[in-house]
């Protein structure tokens, strides 16, 4: 509640008619540029981290299913498929098994064969998608049964290569989050240093305001208002620039197959849009502390 009150005071409640803190000079550009640059880095790191996280989830989800391939002459294929489906129905740990249609097969092979490849014209093996229960399937047992009853069937267990991919993408995602945290901590340090530098250049303003009987709360609010506005605008510019760069990336990565999914979701965009507000909050506390510290040292 107190924080919201401070936020309100910092931006909207301007009791003075005069602008007591100068909104000019090199410190203005220093704080604005610092906020912009740090926001840009934060947004890019955050975006990559979120993309990695989404990819990790997507890959994990899509590779959760195992598949069964059946190669047989065309006239036998339908019969063998029915047998395979019956076997799978009897196998414990199989939640569902369904025959993959021609449309899904086309989509699956599109990155390698292209959009217009006439898949119907060639003899394609039947493909059965197997969904597991939480308990999982005894793949060794299933493989043995299939080799006895359907020798042409090949069972692909995605779990073998899903796990390393999941581990790697999770690690990349965690590394991204760690980078974001580091950037945010650096941003706090940078914003604090920029505020202190700006305050050092304005120590005369502090002295004059004290001399004419300004309350400390008024002095703090005046500085917080102007510094926070600068940092918010700088951060907004940095975030918008980073956003534009991120928007351009998918345009260049079209037809990359699996990497087509490299894009931000709506929730990711919301996280990114929060960056300027986060910087504003950092600025409120950093400036408030810096001004209070300067006032304490003032004679």
């Amino acid at each position: 509640m107190r924080f919201l009150f401070m936020l309100w005071k910092a931006f909207f409640n301007n009791p003075d008619h005069l602008q007591v803190v100068p909104n000019t000079g090199f410190t203005k550009w220093l704080t604005t540029f610092t906020a912009g640059a740090m926001s840009f880095l934060a947004v890019v790191a955050l975006a990559f981290s979120l993309i990695c996280s989404d990819l990790s989830n997507d890959w994990g989800e899509s590779l959760k299913n195992s598949s069964l391939r059946l190669s047989a002459p065309t006239d036998l294929l339908e019969k063998q498929t029915k047998v395979a489906l019956a076997i799978l129905e009897q196998t414990s740990g199989v939640k569902s098994a369904r025959l993959v249609g021609i449309g899904a097969k086309k989509k699956l092979l599109e990155p390698w064969l292209g959009v217009d490849f006439p898949l119907e014209a060639i003899a394609m093996p039947a493909l059965i998608e197997i969904r597991e229960t939480e308990a999982g399937v005894d793949y060794e047992g299933l493989r043995l049964r299939l080799s006895a009853e359907l020798p042409s069937a090949i069972l692909d267990n995605h779990a073998e290569w899903r796990r390393p991919i999941e581990v790697v993408s999770k690690l990349v995602s965690q590394l991204g989050m760690f980078t974001v945290i580091l950037i945010m901590l650096s941003s706090i340090a940078m914003v604090t240093m920029a505020s202190n530098a700006a305050l050092s250049a304005n120590v005369k303003v502090l002295r004059v305001l004290r001399l004419v009987g300004a309350f400390d709360a008024f002095i703090v609010t005046s500085f917080v208002r102007i510094f926070t506005l600068r940092i918010f605008l700088g951060s907004l510019a940095g975030t918008v620039c980073a956003g534009i760069v991120l928007l351009l990336i998918p345009t260049f990565s079209e037809n990359l197959g699996i990497l087509d999914v490299v894009s931000l979701e709506i929730k990711d965009t919301i996280y990114i849009a929060c960056v300027p507000f986060l910087f504003a909050i950092i600025s409120i506390f950093a400036t408030r502390n810096a001004v209070k510290f300067s006032l304490k040292r003032l004679v």
Binding site: P22, L211, V212, F215
Partner: peptide, 24 residues
Amino acid sequence: NYELAKMRRRLGIVHQECEFLDHL
């Protein structure tokens, strides 16, 4: 500090350096 500021409003203080807010 609040009371000191209130007190300074009842004092007129002139320093040798005569500092002002240069942007005003």
